[in-house]
Amino acid sequence: MNHLSSAARIRRGLVRLNRRLRQERGDGSLSPGRLEVLGHLHRNGAATPGEVAAALRQRPQSLTRVFAELEAEGLLAREAGTADRRRSVLSVTDAGRSALERDMAERDAWLARALASLSPTERGVLELAAELMERVADTETLG
Rank of each mutant, 00 (worst) to 15 (best):
M1I: 13
N2P: 15
N2A: 09
N2C: 10
L4W: 09
L4A: 08
S6M: 12
A8L: 15
A8I: 14
R12Q: 13
R12T: 11
R16Q: 07
R19H: 07
R20T: 09
R22V: 06
Q23R: 12
E24T: 10
E24P: 04
E24C: 13
R25E: 15
R25K: 09
R25H: 08
S29M: 02
S31W: 08
P32K: 02
P32I: 01
G33H: 10
G33Q: 12
G33S: 10
G33P: 02
R34D: 09
L35R: 06
V37I: 04
L38K: 01
L38M: 01
G39W: 00
G39L: 00
H40C: 05
L41T: 01
H42M: 08
R43P: 13
R43L: 10
N44E: 14
N44C: 05
A46G: 02
T48R: 08
P49S: 01
A54R: 09
L56R: 06
R57P: 11
Q58N: 07
R59S: 12
P60A: 03
Q61D: 14
L63I: 00
R65S: 13
E69Y: 03
L70R: 00
E71H: 08
E73R: 09
G74K: 02
A77Y: 07
A77Q: 10
E79V: 11
E79L: 07
A80T: 09
A80H: 03
A83Y: 12
D84N: 11
R85N: 07
R87H: 13
V89T: 04
V89P: 00
S91C: 02
T93M: 04
A95K: 10
A95Y: 05
L100M: 02
L100A: 03
L100Y: 00
R102A: 14
D103A: 02
A105H: 09
E106V: 05
R107V: 14
R107D: 05
A109T: 10
A109L: 10
R113N: 12
R113I: 11
A114F: 05
L115V: 08
L115T: 08
S117H: 15
S117G: 15
L118T: 13
L118P: 13
P120N: 06
G124L: 05
L128I: 09
L128H: 08
L128A: 13
E131A: 10
M133R: 08
E134W: 07
R135W: 09
V136S: 10
D138V: 01
T139F: 09
E140Y: 08
T141A: 07
L142Q: 12
G143I: 05
